[in-house]
Computed example of a mutant assay.
Amino acid sequence: MTSHLKIDFVSDVACPWCAVGLGSLEAALRRVAPDVTAELHFQPFELNPQMPPEGQDTFEHLNQKYGSTREQQEQSREMIRARGAEVGFEFHPEGRPRVYNTFDAHRLLHWAGLEDAGRQLALKKRLLKAFFTDRENPSDHAVLVRLAGEVGLDAARAREILASDEFAQETRERERMYTDAGIHSVPAIIINDHHLISGGQPVEVFERALRQIAGAQPSGVVSA
């Protein structure tokens, strides 16, 4: 008998571990198919909700936030690049030049989810690639409209949404819902509204958890 899971993937398009985690989750889903199937829903989380429109230099941002040196940041970048390569995600070797505000990207993702779950997934992956591989600005409306069109969404409608405050309230409400539930770091993967897997876990961890949950095992938390 096939088990179907609902998966809410809480994340930010400016989160490198979210790119790794999504790649790992998709690989795990391929391993458990066709016995286990799932529908992904992407939920908003902003790592830097107060980030101004012009963004901030990445080294400066991480240094201020974590106190990390250039050498430490380089080591972290290399580790993330290696983890990404394991699941087929390519990080630019020089990293991202700036950190940007991602709220409008989340508004578009909310809209895409209302349109079609498959296109929301495609847009999420395209946004991650644009930021981490192509070093594009995920707050630039021209970039967002282009990416929406590339994954088969209505580019004119995307432009209309971005020019307004449409879906802003809904996006804020969802952000608050997850932070109020105790989620303060991402990725956070919630399965069937009950089981939480935290962090950019290896494929094997996701696979084991998916099989356990599909088999109606007791709920639990898997932490990074």
Results as ranks from 00 to 15, higher is better:
210 L>A: 06
196 L>P: 09
163 A>W: 12
195 H>N: 13
101 N>W: 05
142 A>E: 14
193 D>T: 02
137 N>E: 06
172 R>I: 11
153 L>W: 09
187 P>Q: 10
173 E>P: 06
125 K>Q: 15
161 I>V: 14
152 G>H: 11
109 L>G: 00
167 F>C: 02
181 A>L: 14
138 P>T: 01
120 Q>C: 07
137 N>L: 09
131 F>Y: 09
191 I>C: 11
170 E>M: 11
183 I>M: 09
205 V>N: 09
116 D>Y: 01
110 H>F: 09
205 V>M: 06
123 L>I: 00
182 G>C: 07
139 S>E: 04
168 A>G: 06
105 A>C: 03
140 D>F: 00
149 G>H: 09
186 V>L: 07
185 S>T: 14
190 I>R: 03
116 D>S: 10
99 V>F: 12
174 R>Y: 09
118 G>R: 09
123 L>T: 00
159 R>E: 13
184 H>M: 08
113 G>K: 04
154 D>G: 03
141 H>Y: 08
115 E>Q: 13
157 R>G: 00
105 A>H: 01
108 L>R: 06
129 K>C: 02
196 L>D: 05
171 T>M: 06
198 S>E: 12
140 D>R: 01
209 A>M: 11
177 M>V: 13
174 R>T: 13
116 D>Q: 04
171 T>L: 11
154 D>I: 05
189 I>D: 11
192 N>W: 10
126 R>K: 14
177 M>C: 12
159 R>N: 03
195 H>W: 15
159 R>Q: 11
148 A>L: 05
136 E>G: 01
167 F>T: 02
157 R>Y: 08
173 E>D: 14
126 R>H: 05
186 V>K: 04
204 E>M: 03
204 E>T: 10
176 R>A: 14
130 A>T: 00
203 V>N: 11
120 Q>P: 04
195 H>P: 06
130 A>Q: 04
192 N>C: 10
158 A>V: 06
